[in-house]
Nucleic acid binder design. Sequence first.
DNA 1: CAAGCGGGGTTCCGTAAGGGAACCCCGCTT
DNA 2: AAGCGGGGTTCCCTTACGGAACCCCGCTTG
Lengths: 149, 149
Amino acid sequence: MQRTRFGEMACSIARTLDVIGEPWSPLILRDVWAGVRRFDHIQADLGISRKVLTERLNHLVDQGVIERLPYDARPRYEYHLTAKGAELVEMLMVMARWGDRWLAGEAGPPVLYRHHACGQIAHLDLRCGHCGEPMHAGSVDLLPGPGSA
Amino acid sequence: MQRTRFGEMACSIARTLDVIGEPWSPLILRDVWAGVRRFDHIQADLGISRKVLTERLNHLVDQGVIERLPYDARPRYEYHLTAKGAELVEMLMVMARWGDRWLAGEAGPPVLYRHHACGQIAHLDLRCGHCGEPMHAGSVDLLPGPGSA
DNA sequence: CAAGCGGGGTTCCGTAAGGGAACCCCGCTT
DNA sequence: AAGCGGGGTTCCCTTACGGAACCCCGCTTG
């Protein structure tokens, strides 16, 4: 919904929400990431209404997060992540980690992530690119930046 | 919104969306993180309707993401992050990073994050906790986990 | 001690967005 | 020519947001 547009705000979180903040959008992105790329497959997988799915896909394409590519001589299309979209998936990975930790309960995480580089089940770490130490909510100060006008 | 509840799905991303996926919720969390902790301050800062703000705050408190604490002998309250909420802020940091990279434009990022440990402006890295190598959308395989039933 | 004030909500109404089902177009295949 | 499957579009109904008004409660001030 979101009758208020967030994109005007001088806040990268708000602006990002304008791109994937609408209901269903993160789950659509997850599906495309996971290889569910076609309209009917996404629709069936999520149980989303076709109308809303159309709107969300168009918006994500407009924003350059996914692209619509033909996969047949007939007019058939698949949605694929762009580089911009692939970086957004990192947000999904952090969300999944949080859900695994705080919401999964007894049953344990529904999905595991195996890291190509080491073959292990991944445990994501957020670190500072400068010093390599962990970065958490409490370990940063917020300062006005150049675009704070 | 969101007449469809996501929490039933066997997906930690969907479950996390049930906690902070509603419109405004991430921005409320951001405000509380940034030190805007009182009803009227949040309301004024975001321009959100008081009704919706009430609903969102209650939901976030119910979910254990923030807590409502008195700050005066009079019935006055502030909202504070819990440990659960502080970990959610890591999702906000990743969102902010993405917005900084892809949406900030010429003006540059509106907010900078200074890392306590090293004093530098932070550049967040996502790394594998096992091997220490970077983790991106394309560098993991998704496997069914114990809670995949 | 009544009047005012500020924090923190609640109530009400109008409008926009989601849900769901039906319908449509188009290029095969049989 | 009849059918099918992918990929949407249209329609109506209901729910949830936006906005403004209203309310309660515990000071403080004259």
